[in-house]
Design a protein around this nucleic acid. Sequence first.
DNA 1: CATGATAATTAACATATGTTAATGTAGTTT
DNA 2: AAACTACATTAACATATGTTAATTATCATG
Lengths: 192, 192
Amino acid sequence: MNNMEDFFNYLSNGLSVSDEARDLISSIAKIKRFQKGDLLIEQGQENVLQTYFVLNGVLRSFVIDKNDKEHTVQFAIKNWWISDYIGYYSNSEAMLNVDCIKDCIVIKLNRASIQEVFTRFPEFETFHRKNLERTFVRLNKRIVNHLQLSARDRYLNFITEYPEMESVAMNYHIASYLGITQQSLSRIRSNT
Amino acid sequence: MNNMEDFFNYLSNGLSVSDEARDLISSIAKIKRFQKGDLLIEQGQENVLQTYFVLNGVLRSFVIDKNDKEHTVQFAIKNWWISDYIGYYSNSEAMLNVDCIKDCIVIKLNRASIQEVFTRFPEFETFHRKNLERTFVRLNKRIVNHLQLSARDRYLNFITEYPEMESVAMNYHIASYLGITQQSLSRIRSNT
DNA sequence: CATGATAATTAACATATGTTAATGTAGTTT
DNA sequence: AAACTACATTAACATATGTTAATTATCATG
């Protein structure tokens, strides 16, 4: 259905949502649609006040380096969150871009409103904290992978860890997530 | 002084610690001393129930790969936390080692006790959540650095970001943190 | 002071990955 | 169908980093 109900279903898997919490969230969460190529957050923008929950479609966050090369930090599909979490949590200008790579429907929330939810309904802060802990584990694993694995092994790990991504992300998106060039990824694929 | 009081000072910088909270924490936090070379957590051990707050000294977490090479995930000095956060938060066997690289005094806390603190004193959960958010930013930045910087630039970034580390960690510790060999680090240093 | 252990540097050579450029493929528009 | 565009593959060559091994430096200890 790709509507607010999907979001409440997602939340209900992790905590019990009271009617009051439901009302508050309904009033602050905005459903937005984006098309392939749309930019939700742009590197260098003054601040990052929003985070997005994906109902449908695919997005990515990435950085453009001084040689104009893109490096993918994160992908997001249904039921994932995405933003520039560097800018968002450190309250600084945007360090990353977030764009839409398949038409998508997202729920947009801003930090101040989420803080209000935490204050009025502490169980949401616990829910968020547990999510952060899981994400923290994923990031640590990614770092460990980068430290100890070759490009080929990182690729093999990626396709087993995120099998859905191969079909929705383009080759050079995946390469830039793995920290290699699209040509290297092609080479790796051809001798697998 | 390197005693429990230092820990309460640290906590007081982020939240206000009631007498009751102080009592509870005093009863669950244990001061431990380790010597250079001691292993606090060993890769493969059944579970990871502890996290450590550093009062003094230096520790590191690292993984040993299938070729017996070490890869440093994190360093910790005074006022930092350290553990195998992969095992700790995902409630799995230890994926990392934690060892002491300069004699140290730490406070040992276990997850269940910390959970009790969160339940009885929710402001501690907020404090922890904010710490996690900051750490999350640091990990994201590290990933972005790995994706876009050369070994030399990662090194230059490291010494400006963590200037204290150069004097306390050995060369091959730093190299393994940067994802390069000690020889490469030597090479980088010689043409800087 | 001499010895031995540990760590850091250097050099020659090997290899994985990057770079550039050409070619191939698929999907879209006219 | 032709032409165009975007993306993927391939190949020849370049370069950063790894590997191995020898040398040097540092520091504790007999």
